[in-house]
Amino acid sequence: MIKLVTILALFICSLVSAQTQYEQGMTKALGLWNEGKVSESTALFERIALVEKDNWLPNYYIALMNSTAAFGVKDKDKMMAMIDKAQTALDVETLKNPNNPELMVVQALINTVWIVFDPMTNGQKYSPKTMELYQKALAIAPENPRVIASKAEFEIGAAAFWGKDTKLMCNEIKRAIPLFENEKLETPFSPKWGLDRAQELLKNCK
């Protein structure tokens, strides 16, 4: 009996230790990203992903970090390296979770990087796919603030390009803000970004 209790105690301690290591790793990786150290953060998330094979968040953050960092990069080789890193990580999780709206948002961001980098070449190719992703994500998670705000921002960009009215999109941004503020996270590391960007977009809405 004592031996069984000892084994159970060691098992529980190992679980707590593993959880702590995961939490510490995620916290450190997110901290590195916050410091602008994308390469270091990506490397740490990759190590976490190797251990946490059933957890979609490490690869999600690899994809999110590299896709957002790729915006505005002028060097094509550097941009493509970041997008390849993002797409590879995202593909792993999308294969397992094809109906995850958070993953769809990041795929839409990756597509948008391509559009922004070369609108004339990539706009026609990626714009319909991106809108389809946002529509699908919105159907699955109509109250997800990142889905609402990201879709609206993409539509604002398209409307500005074609000289169309952005009132409806601005109303969607406005709708997303209280959803951001009242969002309840499933885990401490669940996606929670987007509020600052939505507030900035709303200020620019006329």
Rank of each mutant, 00 (worst) to 15 (best):
G36A: 12
I83F: 03
L202F: 05
K85T: 15
K78N: 11
M131F: 14
N66P: 04
Y61V: 14
F189I: 03
M1P: 08
R197W: 02
N182Q: 09
K174T: 05
M104Q: 11
T27F: 01
E183R: 08
Q107R: 12
V106N: 06
L103V: 08
P188V: 04
L8N: 04
A29W: 01
G36S: 12
T187R: 07
P188F: 01
S190F: 03
K28I: 11
N55P: 10
D75P: 07
S41V: 07
P101F: 11
M169I: 03
L44N: 09
E46K: 10
K76C: 04
K125A: 10
V5E: 15
K174F: 00
I148D: 05
W162P: 00
Y60N: 00
A141F: 11
Q21P: 07
I83K: 01
A63I: 06
G36K: 08
L168P: 00
A160G: 13
Q107D: 13
N111Q: 08
L8C: 13
I48H: 08
M65N: 15
L15K: 10
E40V: 12
G157V: 03
K74V: 11
L10P: 03
V73S: 06
L10I: 15
L64D: 15
V113K: 02
K76R: 11
W193K: 04
D165T: 04
L138M: 14
I148F: 05
A63P: 02
V105Y: 04
K96T: 02
A198R: 07
S150W: 03
K37I: 02
N97Y: 07
V16Q: 14
E143C: 09
Q124R: 13
K167A: 12
C170P: 02
V38T: 14
S41F: 02
L10N: 14
T112A: 10
F189W: 11
L133P: 10
C170T: 07
A89K: 00
C13P: 04
Q107N: 10
K206F: 06
L185S: 09
T112K: 01
V73E: 09
A137E: 12
E181H: 04
V73I: 15
Y61K: 12
F45M: 15
L179N: 02
K96D: 01
L133K: 03
A9Y: 07
L103F: 09
N66M: 01
